[in-house]
Amino acid sequence: MHLNDPDAKIYVAGHRGMVGSAIWEELKDTGHTNLVGRTSDELDLRDPHATRAFFAAEQPDFVVLAAAVVGGIVANDTYPADFIGDNLAIEQSVIRAAHEVGVDRLIFLGSTCIYPKHAPQPMPEESLLTGPLEPTNQWYAVAKIAGHKLCQAHREQHEDDMLTLMPTNLYGPGDDFDLETAHVLPALLRKAHEAKGAAPDGSDAPVTLWGTGTPKREFLHVNDLADAVRFTLETPEEEIREVAPDGMLNVGVGEDLSIKELMALIQDVVGHDGPVEHDRSKPDGTPRKLVDTNRMDTLGWTAETSLREGIETTYDWYRQQEALNVTR
């Protein structure tokens, strides 16, 4: 069945998360109304028996696997067993169940942390497994590599149409702003917001950056990833196989900036004039993570949201949530 068929049923695993909800809205906004989702309370995707029963009952035509246990450096370091074990369990359950019911296409969402710490820049898909991983997120990375390889194995053994999208660092409305688990952009956005007027004299308090601030990162707005997912679902299989025989596609914006530069941009958006300090006892992480987007470029997709625009919409969402919490 083609995705443009009005009866095509699409299961979005993880539809309540930042990524899954953006994908859900993108599909709905582009006319796809036969969408299926289950919360983690309704369906534990780590349970293969429950997952198989769900797939057998619903018989989805397309699957987007956005469900995952996610977090930043602190969370990876604190909960390594959860990051590798739960993600492996989710991937195994969903991918095998999708194979058993014969879905038309499955898209698995990975992460560019799967690439070696010192991969060539920008990182092509071919650099996978060519060197050691960044230790600070190795648990999540190993699980995501395994998920991609499971999709690739199904392509080779069963000719299943299973693809992996590897998005770069994501951010946007619905992001995690908990400083214990958040990724760098929402964490810095919250720090800058809370530091406004927080000094004893009423001026802006300092904001602390981990490490040197010199590592460079690329940031993709979650709505752009959602658009890339829809685009990939709609692209004919033969076109994808021509540019990505391994079924793997990087999704990024093609440019990056240092954490220092990111902090300056966030300060400008938030209106924070305080000093920036460095905690050099904390790790820098991977020196650079810029993805090679040649494959998606060839297929005809590019990101549209500028970083400044994306940070502004994310900050607006954060302030709205903060206001809601105050009024509750």
Rank of each mutant, 00 (worst) to 15 (best):
Val74Asp: 15
Leu106Asn: 05
Leu106Gln: 04
Ala146Ile: 09
Ile114Ala: 10
Lys144Glu: 01
Ala89Trp: 03
Asp86Leu: 06
Gly147Asp: 04
Phe83Tyr: 15
Val69Ala: 12
Glu100Gly: 07
His99Ser: 14
Val74Trp: 12
Pro60His: 05
Val63Lys: 03
Val142Phe: 02
Val70Leu: 11
Asp61Ile: 00
Ser127Leu: 08
Glu134Phe: 09
Phe62Cys: 02
Phe62Leu: 05
Thr112Arg: 11
Ile90Ala: 01
Glu91Trp: 10
Leu109Tyr: 08
Pro120Glu: 12
Leu133Phe: 07
Leu128Cys: 12
Pro60Arg: 07
Ala67His: 03
Ala98Asp: 01
Asn76Gly: 13
Ile145Gly: 01
Ala67Leu: 04
Ala68Cys: 04
Ala57Trp: 00
Tyr79Phe: 15
Leu133Ala: 07
Tyr115Met: 07
Leu109Pro: 10
Gly102Ser: 01
Ala141Val: 06
His99Phe: 12
Leu65Arg: 00
Gln92Met: 12
Tyr79Val: 14
Asp104Ile: 08
Gly131Trp: 08
Ala89Lys: 05
Ile95Leu: 09
Ala67Trp: 04
Thr78Asp: 11
Ala146Glu: 13
Lys144Asn: 01
Tyr79Asp: 15
Val63Asn: 02
Val103Gly: 03
Leu129Phe: 08
Gln92Lys: 13
Gly71Met: 03
Ala67Phe: 00
Thr136Glu: 12
Ile107Ser: 03
Tyr115Glu: 03
Ile90Gly: 00
Val69Asn: 09
Pro122Leu: 07
Tyr115Asn: 05
Asn137Gly: 14
Gly102Trp: 02
Leu109Phe: 10
Ala146Arg: 12
Pro132Cys: 07
Leu65Cys: 04
Thr130Glu: 11
Val69Met: 10
Pro80Ala: 02
Trp139Phe: 14
Ala146His: 13
Val142Tyr: 03
Ile73Gly: 06
Thr130Ser: 14
Thr130Tyr: 03
Gly71Cys: 04
Glu126Lys: 13
